[in-house]
Design a protein around this nucleic acid. Structure first.
Lengths: 204, 204
DNA sequence: GCGGCGACTATACGATCGTACACTAAAGTA
DNA sequence: TACTTTAGTGTACGATCGTATAGTCGCCGC
């Protein structure tokens, strides 16, 4: 009765429902274009309850970003710490990718947060960068991470690899939808490659 | 007297000044967060004149996107049609890159427009894709473009190569600013690589 | 059993938004 | 000269926004 796997989050607390509804709306339409009344309606509550739980709209965003940070942190920490350095890194990448696939709204939210360089509001990228840098440092001092490049480059590489392609994918998708004829299928779509390399390195 | 190269656009018509001011503000803060009164103030006019020239806020965005399309079209068409297919493609890439460097607000505007998949409003990406596809087709039928890949992939490749890196760069920049110590300089910053390749091709 | 407290609703306020409109000044045109 | 058009100003209206606040209901500890 409680908990068919595909049901909505009817069994969550109202506070969590509000947070999730806001995250989904922010991902789809952006924070500016989302009214608190729309969030309340999507969560099945009234505006008053939103401000009761989160005080202000800024407080709501803060809660959302803490929630996202927790999702990343939890996903990383549950990946097994076994095998070679490359295997550990791959397991973490996959754990994060799986979490993002289960929470597509997080991708949309982060895309908007990251592409907005006027970031006096929202420090989610800063927090995620700190998280990634911390885990890289820990792995390195435990001797289970490659030290072929600087740790700063390694951190940026992890972030770009995990997020960069997801951010650019909608651009490729809409271009493909516009250009591809009916005879060309989804699996013919070109693949995006996003990565970083050290300055002065060979290659274009 | 009229036209020291670095001066602001004081000699432009009020309509052009409004359009440029709106483009700059949209690039920095987004359309939703930019009030028409702020645009008018930045252009040195009143709100009434903005609506007089552009009717509505939608009309203003339409004028901006037409302007951007003209910038791209003009930049491509002034690149010389000489040398090998690769040389022509390189000349066009450079002409577009130069135009974007002279108009940084265009990059910011396009970043927001393109990474925002809820695109019932704004068809600038669609228009730019059509422009790119048209030029690819023309070059191919003139026999001065590579035919090693499908034209759709080639078109997407051009767009991603010219825009993808510019869109993701702010993410790398802010991470670098957070991670790099005072001893690490700008030229040590890792390089972004964004490209596409055909599905099923070798490589990771 | 009762007082307090958290969850929650309903309503109202002030600010700001996009837009409409009436008006003036200057310039073109017959 | 007289008429029309165009650039530009100033103000006001209705809608919507975030937020504040008073009040209701139910639960829990003593």
């Amino acid at each position: 009765m409680a908990g068919t796997p595909q049901q909505a989050d009817n069994d969550l607390t109202a506070k969590a429902r509000i947070r999730n509804a806001a995250l989904a709306l922010y991902a789809d339409f952006g924070e500016d274009a989302t009214a608190m009344r729309a969030i309340a309606e999507a969560a099945g509550v009234t505006v008053g309850l939103v401000v009761h739980h989160f005080r202000t709209k800024d407080g709501l965003r803060e809660a959302i970003e803490q929630h996202i940070l927790g999702l990343f942190s939890h996903a990383i920490d549950q990946a097994p710490l076994e095998g070679t350095a490359a295997a550990i890194a791959a397991a973490r990448d996959e754990a994060v990718a799986s979490m993002l696939a289960r929470n597509p709204a997080v991708i949309g939210y982060l895309r908007r947060a990251v592409l907005d360089p006027t970031g006096h509001r929202g420090r989610i990228l800063e927090m995620l960068t700190r998280l990634a840098a911390d885990r890289v440092k820990t792995l390195r001092s435990a001797g289970v991470a490659s030290v072929a490049q600087r740790d700063t480059s390694q951190t940026i590489g992890v972030m770009v690899r995990q997020l960069g392609q997801l951010f650019l994918q909608p651009m490729v998708d809409s271009m493909w939808a516009q250009l591809a004829g009916p005879d060309e299928a989804e699996h013919d779509k070109p693949h995006l490659v996003v990565k970083v390399h050290e300055p002065g390195a060979p290659g274009s």
